[in-house]
Design a protein around this nucleic acid. Structure first.
Length: 432
RNA sequence: GGAGAGGUGGCUGAGUGGUCGAAAGCGACGGUUUGCUAAACCGUUGAACGGAGAAAUCCGUUCCGGGGGUUCGAAUCCCCCCCUCUCCGCCA
């Protein structure tokens, strides 16, 4: 969430940002309410604090007073004060809760260079890298390849777990593990700490990251009779890793590469491009997550580093991709700026299409404030909120689509990308 | 799952109703000493919010796992929840 003080001091800028981000009008309208509520809160806080000061004085004096009569007078005053402060305290507490919930709905501010636009088609393509391969046969999609080579079993997935689930078999298993290993090794060599995270997390952590597990539109599975949810991404657990901590400047930046399973209900996604592995309820993902000092210089630089790593991974895999600078309307709540990589998928659409494979966001202090992750800046008093960033290293299901479709051969088998051969242990997918 | 013990500042840890935001140690920071490093010695050292001030800083409120309660007064007593440890059970 945003800093309440910032909202109160810059209501016009915050409103303009909400408009650019295409959030629902009632959120924009709430900004005035926030300003008014905050004013009321301050007045009330002043009153409550005054009464409490007197209460404290009386309580201390009572302890020291030896004379029984005077002591009884003090106790009487204490009782009176206790009654006085009650109503205001209740109101203050209510106000604070309400303010927090209202401010929490306001999206993060936006990077000045991010394209302004309400809908996703207004995101800007920064560059295309690699040339889509020209096939001398009609390329098949990964569903077809997966079935014919007995790599992916959607029917069995449907039977056991429902639509949107699948079994990986044979070389698909080796391919997935090779991609995992390749990605993690790449990140470790760049100074990231490898982590395997829990696949479930508390509601409070989900909320801190900016998910809303209880809404009607939620993308998140909840576990009945607990406060746990299945995570939609390791961003949730990695972000929560340092919740309520005060880090030392010298520790920063902290860079993690996390492995987790990801679970998504994909509510409301029916009808969207969702064939095969592209949109599924469960997949494995290698996720980068970083905590930096709370300056735009620090997080901005690391954001570019995360993007560069994502590009290096897909370049190494030999898969053509394009980079999108995501427009204001499609940033989601927490992101200050976001870049997506879309990989070329020859089997998608009529003659191949780019499909999203990674996404990296700079969330500045938006998540850190709610998760309460701070650091002590060297040479300064007090603490500051860190900045958090996340980025996909490899989402296995979608990377698998790209590999299978780009590396397929006329004979129906699939070549193994050069960098994966040592990890996969063979040169050809599908031959047994 | 059963029984017990705990959760206190950046860390370790004392504190069982008032003088406690909290001893002591460690760490960190500043200084003295020193050819450098180390050691020793002296000093400083929690956070959030609000108010005053040009600022250094000062004042107030809140915070001892979280939430409620008792009391004039709670780190300390009571209730609920979360977490950690030990033992037992079960198990990959």
């Amino acid at each position: 969430m945003l800093d309440l003080k910032f909202v109160v001091e810059n209501p016009a800028a915050v409103k303009a940002n909400c408009v650019a981000r295409n959030v629902s009008a009632d959120i924009t309208a709430e900004i005035d309410a926030v300003v008014a509520l905050d004013r009321e809160r301050k007045t009330l806080q002043f009153e409550v604090e005054n009464v409490r000061r007197r209460q404290n004085e009386v309580a201390q004096a009572t302890g020291k007073e030896k004379d029984v009569e005077k002591r009884n007078e003090l106790v009487a005053e204490g009782k009176r004060l206790k009654g006085d402060v009650g109503i205001n305290e209740e109101r203050l507490k209510t106000l604070e809760v309400e303010l927090k919930s209202r401010v929490g709905r306001i999206p993060n501010m936006t990077h000045p260079d991010a394209p302004v636009g309400a809908t996703e088609d207004l995101s800007v393509e920064l560059r295309k890298v690699g040339t889509p391969r020209v096939f001398d046969f009609k390329p098949r999609d990964h569903v077809d390849l997966g079935r014919s080579l007995d790599l992916i079993d959607f029917e069995a997935g449907g039977k056991v777990s429902g639509n949107g689930f699948y079994f990986l078999k044979h070389d698909a298993v080796l391919l997935e593990m090779a991609l995992q290993h390749f990605a993690i090794r790449t990140l470790v060599s760049r100074g990231f700490t490898p982590v395997i995270t829990p696949d479930l997390a508390r509601v409070s952590i989900l909320e801190g990251i900016g998910f809303n597990p209880r809404g009607a539109e939620t993308q998140v599975y909840s576990v009945e009779n607990t406060d746990l949810c299945l995570i939609g991404t390791a961003e949730i657990t990695l972000g929560g890793l340092h919740a309520d901590e005060i880090l030392e400047s010298a520790q920063l930046p902290i860079k993690y590469v996390g492995l987790s399973h990801c679970f998504r209900t994909e509510a409301g996604a029916a009808g969207r491009a969702s064939k095969g592995l592209y949109r599924v309820h469960q997949f494995t993902k290698i996720e980068m997550f970083a905590f930096t000092e709370g300056t735009l210089e620090a997080s901005g630089a690391l954001h570019l580093e995360l993007l560069k790593i994502e590009e290096e991974i897909f370049t190494a895999l030999g898969i053509p991709y394009r980079v999108l600078d995501i427009c204001s309307g499609d940033l989601g709540g927490p992101a200050y700026r976001k870049f997506d990589l879309e990989a070329w998928m020859p089997g998608r659409g009529e003659a191949g299409e780019y499909g999203e494979v990674t996404s990296t966001s700079n969330c500045t202090d938006y998540q850190a404030r709610r998760l309460n992750v701070r650091y002590k800046p060297t040479g300064q008093k007090g603490t500051k909120f860190v900045h958090t960033l996340n980025g996909t290293a490899i989402a296995l299901s979608r990377a698998m689509i790209a590999v299978l479709e780009n590396y397929q051969r006329a004979d129906g088998l699939v070549d193994v990308p050069e960098v994966l051969k040592p990890y996969l242990g063979k040169d050809l997918i599908g031959r047994r």
